[in-house]
């Protein structure tokens, strides 16, 4: 049910690679948890990418495929030894195929508290036109 709220989840999901494909960076890559919702004039995407720096987030839109790729540099406190590890630090990557026509020039992206927010305005032609049915 996409409309109901989900409970908090502690585990991260790794990116599934197609067979025969490898990542160039020898690092785990995670699938960021995402919310996508549609309003009358835009598609809004929220993505959890904790630990990434703003400048290391790469967003591309090519032929309706939106890809978000974030590089995360692990920060380790100096002279400390890891005693318990419940999560791994790795990159994030995820792609979505957008069904609507998006106005590419007006895409807005912001990153705050580890959440990337993308507002993808619909192109004028793709905006829903309400057609009212006349009762006869």
């Amino acid at each position: 049910m996409p409309d109901s709220e989900k409970a908090l989840d502690a585990e991260k999901q790794e990116v599934a690679l197609s067979e025969g494909t490898e990542l160039t960076r020898d690092r785990v890559t995670f699938l960021p948890r995402s919310d996508i919702y549609e309003t009358n004039d835009a598609l809004v995407l929220l993505m959890d990418i904790p630990g990434a720096k703003e400048e290391d987030i790469d967003i591309t839109l090519e032929k309706n495929i939106l890809t978000v790729h974030a590089l995360v540099e692990p920060k380790e406190p100096e002279n400390y030894a890891l005693a318990l590890q419940e999560y791994e630090i790795g990159d994030y990557q995820r792609s979505f195929r957008l069904s609507n026509e998006i106005d590419q020039d007006r895409i807005e992206a912001s990153y705050r508290h580890g959440v990337l927010r993308l507002v993808l305005p619909k192109a004028e032609a793709a905006k829903a036109k309400k057609i009212s049915i006349k009762a006869e």
């Binding site: 908090l8 989840d9 502690a10 585990e11 991260k12 929220l46 959890d48 990418i49 904790p50 630990g51 380790e76 406190p77 002279n79 400390y80 030894a81 890891l82 005693a83 318990l84 590890q85 419940e86 999560y87 791994e88 508290h113 580890g114 959440v115």
Partner: peptide, 30 residues
């Protein structure tokens, strides 16, 4: 490699003679 966290948030714990450093990923929380 990783011990699954029993509940949110997952934590990493670093130890030295000087003290402890705990980190946790809590995206979207002010």
């Amino acid at each position: 490699r990783v011990q699954p966290a029993p509940s949110f948030p997952a934590m990493n714990l670093w130890v030295s003679d000087e003290g402890i450093v705990v980190t946790a990923e809590v995206p979207g929380i002010k």
